[in-house]
């Protein structure tokens, strides 16, 4: 029948509430540098009486709090001179959407864009490569015959269901004529689901806001005088 309470499988090495050490496994795969790392089983008197280590932890959090507070006050002296952006802040948080994080990736894959030829026609030749490569099947193309025989085909319709898109960048990778690109824009919100389908005209004409690359990071922003 069932096993006895407190002596079931997982607790066979738990005797009277005390954990017994397990024998080291003598297997053939235990070669290499294996470091046993554990804390002693019994608590020291300092651990037993709670307070010393609770106070140590409190001291650490208080130290961090004071450091951040001082950093904020130093930042204030810059801010009153209108140089708030130059000084180091006491917190890593930013005021989104009024500012972007400084280490925002310049190669972030975001909203799509369709490139144009010199005469404002789409660069796309409707070869369906992007639609084929798309793992989410969110690109829909209707091809038409282009008057210029050198171009042959062009997209009459080019729809991206942006709410289905997973931003893997495969369309960009698959395109043989550099017609579709992923910009860094990440602001993809709307109140209507219908508007989350981007058509050809929108993809050709919307203006992306590129983020300039700079190698400054929030935690270690250089302080300038």
């Amino acid at each position: 029948m069932g096993t006895q309470r407190g002596k079931n499988k997982g607790f066979e090495n738990l005797v009277d509430g005390q954990v017994l050490p397990q024998p080291a496994y003598q297997g053939e795969f235990t070669e290499g540098e294996i470091v046993q790392y554990y804390n002693p089983e019994s608590m020291t008197w300092a651990e037993r009486i709670y307070l010393p280590y609770v106070l140590a932890g409190l001291g650490l959090t208080a130290k961090v709090f004071l450091r951040n507070m001082v950093t904020w006050f130093v930042w204030l002296t810059y801010w009153v001179r209108g140089k708030g952006a130059e000084a180091k802040r006491g917190a890593t948080t930013i005021y989104y959407p009024h500012e972007m994080r400084p280490d925002f990736s310049p190669v972030n894959r975001g909203k799509h864009i369709l490139t144009m030829r010199d005469n404002d026609d789409p660069q796309c030749v409707a070869c369906y490569m992007c639609a084929t490569a798309c793992p989410a099947f969110c690109i829909h193309i209707v091809a038409g015959e282009h008057p210029d025989p050198a171009i042959e085909k062009y997209p009459v319709r080019f729809d991206i269901e942006i709410d289905k898109c997973i931003f893997c960048g495969y369309c960009e990778e698959a395109c043989p004529v550099d017609a579709i690109r992923l910009t860094t824009d990440v602001h993809l919100v709307d109140y209507k689901r219908e508007r989350m389908v981007y058509d050809r005209e929108y993809l050709l004409t919307w203006k992306p806001t590129y983020v300039e690359e700079e190698h400054v990071y929030p935690g270690d922003r250089p302080r300038k005088s």
Binding site: L14, Q18, P23, N39, M43, E47, G57, L60
Partner: peptide, 24 residues
């Protein structure tokens, strides 16, 4: 810092030590 905060904290030790034991 995390080591300082929790390693020797008895509340943490009591919650973690001897709990969820799986034998070898």
């Amino acid at each position: 810092d995390v080591h300082v905060l929790v390693d020797h904290n008895r509340i943490f030790i009591d919650r973690m030590r001897g709990v969820g034991v799986v034998s070898q």
